[in-house]
Design a protein around this nucleic acid. Structure first.
Lengths: 203, 203
DNA sequence: GTGTCTATCTATAAGGC
DNA sequence: TGCCTTATAGATAGACA
């Protein structure tokens, strides 16, 4: 009911007061905090994706909102970078007790089967990593219009992007990827069965 | 006070050409790439810290440089956020097995993890086995079309069948299957990481 | 939660130390 | 690597839909 703020007919209305500087301290008003969280999280992920592309870096980001909701960013995926991190941790930790890792008849406190399992795991992780490094994952990142602001980064993996939103010609690269993926899975399946079904494992 | 910087009359020394726009694509010159990596990594971490403070969020960032060096940022620390992530993944996957697995900030003890790992293996193998048979049955049912009379093919698994022969609308079921598969693989990888890192977890 | 708009504020590319 | 400077590109607070 206040005419001074509603008329847009004659007066060119200043739509915004513009950005203002804020102190870096907890935003108390929960509504504003939520908005800022959303915006800055997206900004953070965008920065991360740019870093990945510009510098060929791998990045994993985990963000837990105050409400407890979890958001992730990963290039090429969260797991590969996580894997690298965890393995390094492990390496740092065991650097003294295990300098020669391929001791087949070793006396570690893990059984031989465990070692093989772990080896298989690492192999899979490595394969996944290689797979995504092949290049097209990058295309996916760029394709998602990361630079335009209209992107959806809730997908941890490139293949999580809904197919429905892809144009037909875009299906081809994805098809290739899926083929490679399933081949990977298939080969793993064989090995996995080997381990699980026959404890004699390999020669 | 400094005449060289106050007026343009005497010495017009342009100290910099200023920032220029760059395309978001891999920087080829390694020296420039390294500099950019450094700057942007710091910028990313700063943004992250601001997000944490402003919104009371938890963040973990892992960055692996092309040279393989690993940088991390964490608030309150990398491990706590990581734990939250891993536990959630694990929780999601074992949602039916464990009724109270949301021990945020902690990891399971080793023996329990070993048990879980074994169980995990069996579960994966079983699921894959089911998936395989289901897929084969499916394939068998809609036989005759793209396989001709030759359904005695060399494909061990349904997902080995060439996608080329599928019509577009047929991609959806396959997509679903692949989603299930990759979710399985993803969960498996994450659990593995958790296990690998068991002796290195925080505190 | 998302998108839009504007007026700022901030990050950073390039070059040098 | 770290630390300048400059000129500018990019991010975003605030208000609204």
């Amino acid at each position: 009911m206040d005419p001074t703020t509603t008329t847009t007919t004659s007066v060119q209305k200043k739509k915004s007061t513009g950005r203002k500087k804020i102190a870096i301290e907890k935003i108390e008003r929960s509504e504003r905090r939520q908005v800022t969280f959303s915006k800055r999280r997206m900004g953070l992920f965008k920065k991360a994706s740019e870093l990945c592309i510009l510098c060929a870096a791998e990045v994993a980001i985990l963000v837990s909102s105050p409400a407890g909701k979890l958001y992730t960013f990963g290039y090429p995926c969260v797991e590969s970078t996580l894997d690298r991190f965890l393995n390094q941790q492990q390496h740092d930790h065991h650097i003294n007790m295990n300098n020669n890792n391929n001791n087949v008849g070793g006396v570690l406190n893990v059984s031989m089967q465990d070692q093989q399992q772990q080896h298989e795991y690492n192999e899979i992780a490595s394969l996944l990593e290689q797979e995504k490094k092949r290049g097209e994952a990058l295309e996916f990142l760029k394709k998602g219009d990361w630079s335009g602001g209209n992107y959806n980064n809730n997908y941890q993996f490139w293949w999580d992007a809904p197919i429905e939103n892809l144009e037909f010609h875009e299906l081809n690269p994805m098809k290739t990827k899926l083929e490679e993926l399933r081949n990977m899975v298939a080969s793993k399946l064989v090995v996995d069965h080997n381990i699980n079904n026959s404890s004699c494992s390999r020669v």
